[in-house]
Design a protein around this nucleic acid. Structure first.
Length: 915
DNA sequence: GGGGAGACTTGAAAATATGCCT
DNA sequence: AGGCATATTTTCAAGTCTCCCC
């Protein structure tokens, strides 16, 4: 079945076009042109800050090799040479590199507890070594050379250095030739970084200004219930004035059109790519780099390695921290490590120049395709029709089983679900089948069989379970990895989706439809030109198509059977460099917004009263996106659930409450709500916020003459809105506001609220901030079924403890008087305890009660709030990592294994990093 | 400039694993 | 050692946004 990619292949395969060069290990150097451009912009912007760039680079490095040392049997890619693996745990190297790169600062946080840390670090070191070897380039060397060339990524060396050495200076940017106003302005603004206001979420600002309203919570203090906007209030700032002014003055912001336009043009080129534009930009940015540096071709990891030693002060700190981080990572990775066995693949020569082409996402790509779910195994259990057992063909039975299994889900209460199911299933049954009415079908026997199977599984001994798991792993292993530019990377979703009934959320019109089985002939594979084409795992069948498109990152795709116009892609995992790179770019863009935000806000504020309706709508929409963290709101088809975002808000979604409040409801809550106030199971999003009067008035105007179901912003759609945003800042789109507001809120809260205390207390601070962000972004979860039961159990326990407490107090009284304690509930005589002991017990019990009450409160507060989504998608991990370093909180208290892997690129950030 | 294809990110819920308590 | 609670991972739906074409 599966194919193994012969080792040799791995080695020299595909060098697509440009890569004839020596083998190497490159990482996604090749950003698309857009990316490059953006990057460059971003770079410019960020170069002025001291953020942890160097760090990131380093981490990439490690990442890539991280595992090299282990080697061995990787079936999937057996080869004598080992590949650099970049997988999750990579960190080891990071530590080194970081260490090297940055001088240590002082005592810094140890990320981890000593013991483990040490171990890890050792390992890490070891690993590093290995890596080095493998790569052929020693890290050291890399480091040393850094200057020479590529390090790429992110900025000219000079810039980097500068940036590092003086953080907030504009130096870097200036040096980087970029002529644009924007740049300048940024630079200038930079100085104002501290201006709280500026950085603060809009809501905050507004609040400050108007002390009004709804929101009155105190600073970040959790006012838990408050809707986002309200939460953050105050923060205002004293400081602001001056800085603000200066930035304003510099105010080049909107003007940037020039730039932006060019950028956009640059962006366009997909395939055609406009190297020029990009290039020039790059040049600018990297001005001082030698051209040799095409580092484009160099793997990020490598580039990273090379990063120049900064001598900075912080290094020791960094080093330590980094180590810690890495070690922990490493540990985590152990497992994965095992899997990676061959790691010697990397060679480290420089890669050939791929630099110019902006679109290119990779040069060589090798993988084994995808794995299919096993064929259906008929169970022979018969459903009852009108009370009589019915024979079904395996195909019919398979679909019947899909339905039966959903017996106790809410879908069974949805007529649409049943209707769609029946339409598809009855087709399978055929016209003349006995079964003519779904309501007469009793699927219980199948359902019960299903429960039994589940039970059986549960009852298996742990050995059996383990064996099973191993078996599965064995089958899947070869599909789990891809080799991208000679680096082994995890594949995200290599399992083809099994057939099933479509579980659309909310009132999705297609729920219940049969999602048919996907076969090889549905699948298009994307792979390097010279890579072996994955063998089709199902004998006798073959892939639909093979492509060699290196401008995209997908490894395979098929058309969604429910909506054939859409696609399902197989991508690399979140821990891959390719994803990491784009993640980083996302945050850099959001950080760039920080520099522009003040002017953007000023601009839209001005437009609230514009004569031009479109302008006014754009202004108000932008405001809502900024203040309420609304999503853009693309148009939706009729065959999708009816949900709304900003541009698709209906009149009925926004209610004006005099004198100046808006009640916004039903704004896209996946699966929960739609505009029309649904069933009981839909949780409505409702948020009442106070807004500036001009906004309030403008909304009133947009309402007039329309019915509730008309579009509130009738002159607007996401294209127009984003086009406008791009005029304000290169690359700016609606979603950037979410990222920005989420990250800036975390950064500020953490920095304001963190006090001395033990780790646990700091973690609580973090969680509070995280929660604040989740609320801002409206990340909800459904209340767990057992929530109320759990709460009452806790209440019971507390009551019980209080009883104990009371008793203890009585006993204490008595003991003080020399009397024996009262008898216990069973009438037995209790032991005689001294008053001291009793007092101690009382204190303990009190503490226990307090803790339980706190836990209960937290549980209640978080019952509908999902913290994970923001952590994964909206919070710049560098904020978290830097904070952990500064406050000696082990990073793994905040990031689990997956997040550590996903954010490997952020681990080396400077402890001083601020968003 | 509007629409659709295409590619990629974001999101909640289900499935599993792990931890904790008794 | 079993049973629940919680944490993590997986799954796959549902967004956003870009580019290209007409």
């Amino acid at each position: 079945m599966a194919v193994e990619a012969p080792a040799k292949h791995v080695f020299d395969f595909d060098d697509d076009d440009d890569d004839d060069g020596p083998v190497v290990f490159k990482r996604n150097n090749t950003l698309s042109s857009k990316q490059n451009q953006l990057n460059s912009e971003i770079k410019k912007a960020s170069s002025q800050r001291s953020d942890g760039h160097s760090g990131s680079r380093a981490s990439y490095v490690q990442a890539s090799n991280g595992q090299s040392s282990s080697s061995q049997k990787n079936k999937a890619f057996p080869s004598s040479k080992s590949l650099p693996v970049r997988s999750p745990i990579l960190s080891p190297k990071a530590s080194t590199s970081s260490a090297r790169t940055s001088p240590v600062k002082s005592p810094v946080a140890n990320f981890k507890t000593p013991a483990s840390l040490n171990d890890h670090s050792k390992q890490a070191l070891k690993q590093n070594k290995c890596n080095v070897v493998n790569e052929g380039k020693s890290p050291i060397k890399g480091a040393t050379e850094a200057n020479s060339d590529d390090d790429d990524d992110l900025q000219p060396l000079s810039a980097q250095l500068k940036g590092i050495s003086n953080q907030g200076t504009k130096g870097a940017s200036t040096s980087s030739t970029a002529p644009s106003h924007r740049l300048v302005s940024k630079t200038e603004i930079k100085g104002s970084t501290k201006d709280p206001d500026d950085e603060a979420p809009l809501s905050v600002r507004f609040n400050m200004k108007s002390s009004a309203g709804t929101s009155s919570s105190k600073l970040y203090d959790s006012d838990e219930k408050k809707p986002l906007a309200s939460n953050n209030e105050q923060k205002c700032s004293t400081v602001k004035g001056k800085q603000e002014k200066s930035s304003m003055l510099s105010g080049k912001r909107p003007l940037d059109k020039g730039n932006s336009s060019d950028q956009s043009s640059a962006k366009k080129p997909k395939i055609s790519d406009t190297p020029t534009a990009m290039k020039s930009k790059q040049l600018t940015v990297k001005a001082e780099k030698a051209d040799e540096d095409d580092d484009d071709d160099i793997p990020i990891s490598q580039r990273i390695k090379k990063s120049p030693p900064t001598n900075s002060k912080t290094s020791s700190m960094k080093q330590k921290a980094a180590k810690v981080v890495s070690s922990s990572l490493k540990k985590l990775n152990k497992k994965s490590k095992k899997e990676f066995k061959n790691s010697k693949y990397i060679k480290s020569t420089k890669v050939s120049p791929s630099s110019g082409d902006g679109q290119k996402k990779w040069s060589t790509l090798v993988h084994n395709g995808v794995i299919f779910p096993p064929p259906y195994k008929p169970h022979g259990i018969k459903l009852l029709y009108d009370g009589r057992p019915i024979d079904l063909t395996p195909e019919q039975e398979e679909v019947a089983t899909m339905f039966a299994v959903m017996k106790d889900t809410d879908y069974m209460n949805k007529p649409q679900f049943k209707k769609n199911f029946w339409e598809d299933w009855s087709k399978l049954l055929g016209k003349n089948h006995t079964i003519k009415d779904l309501d007469k079908c009793d699927f219980t026997p199948i359902y019960e069989w299903h429960l039994q199977e589940k039970e059986k599984k549960k009852q298996m001994s742990s050995e059996e379970k383990k064996a099973l798991k191993e078996e599965k792993l064995k089958q899947e292993e070869k599909y789990m990895w891809a080799i991208v530019d000679r680096v082994k990377e995890k594949v995200g979703n290599f399992r083809v989706e099994p057939p099933g009934l479509f579980r659309g959320r909310g009132e999705h019109p297609k729920m219940g439809k049969l999602k048919r089985r996907i076969r090889p002939s549905d699948i298009t594979i994307n792979i390097g030109k010279n890579a072996p084409i994955p063998e089709c795992p199902i004998p006798g069948e073959s892939w639909k198509d093979i492509k060699h498109d290196n401008t995209v990152t997908w490894l395979a795709f098929w058309n969604d059977p429910i909506n054939p116009k859409e696609f399902k892609y197989v991508f690399l995992a979140a821990s891959s460099s390719l994803k990491g790179q784009s993640d980083k770019e996302k945050y850099e863009k959001a950080r760039m917004l920080k520099e522009y935000i003040k002017n953007i806000r000023a601009a839209y504020t001005k437009d609230f009263t514009s004569k031009d309706v479109t302008k006014r709508q754009i202004a108000v929409a932008t405001y809502l996106i900024d203040k309420l963290a609304l999503r853009a709101g693309n148009e939706k088809d009729d065959d999708e659930a009816d949900t709304v975002g900003c541009c698709t808000l209906k009149v009925g979604n926004v209610e004006c409450i005099p004198p100046n409040k808006l009640k916004v409801k039903s704004v896209y809550v996946p699966g929960k709500d739609t505009f029309d106030f649904l069933g009981k199971d839909s949780i409505q999003y409702v948020n009442t916020v106070e807004v500036e009067l001009p906004v309030y008035n403008a909304i009133g105007q947009f309402h007039t003459g329309k019915s509730k179901s008309d579009d509130l912003f009738d002159k607007l759609d996401t294209n127009k809105l984003n086009a406008h945003l791009k005029e304000l800042m290169p690359g700016l789109t609606a979603k950037v506001f979410r990222t920005y507001n989420a990250s800036i809120t975390l950064d500020e809260m953490l920095n304001k609220e963190t006090k001395d205390g033990d780790v646990a207390e700091k973690v609580v601070i973090y969680q509070r901030a995280n929660k604040e962000v989740a609320i801002i972004c409206n990340h909800q979860r459904s209340i767990s079924k057992s929530h109320s039961a759990q709460m009452s159990r806790l209440t019971e326990k507390i009551t019980e403890l209080k009883g104990v407490l009371k008793e203890l107090k009585i006993d204490l009284d008595r003991a003080k008087k020399g009397k024996p304690p009262l008898k216990d509930a069973d009438g037995k005589q209790k032991r005689n305890l001294t008053p001291e002991v009793l007092e101690k017990k009382i204190a303990q019990t009190n503490a226990k009660i307090e803790k339980m009450e706190r836990d209960m409160q937290t549980k209640e507060d978080l019952k509908t709030v999902a913290l994970g989504t923001s952590k994964i998608n909206y919070l710049d991990p560098r904020i978290t990592v830097a904070w952990c370093k500064r406050h000696e909180v082990p990073i793994e208290k905040i990031f689990n294994k997956s997040l550590l892997a996903k954010f490997a690129w952020a681990m080396d950030v400077d402890p001083d990093f601020r968003f």
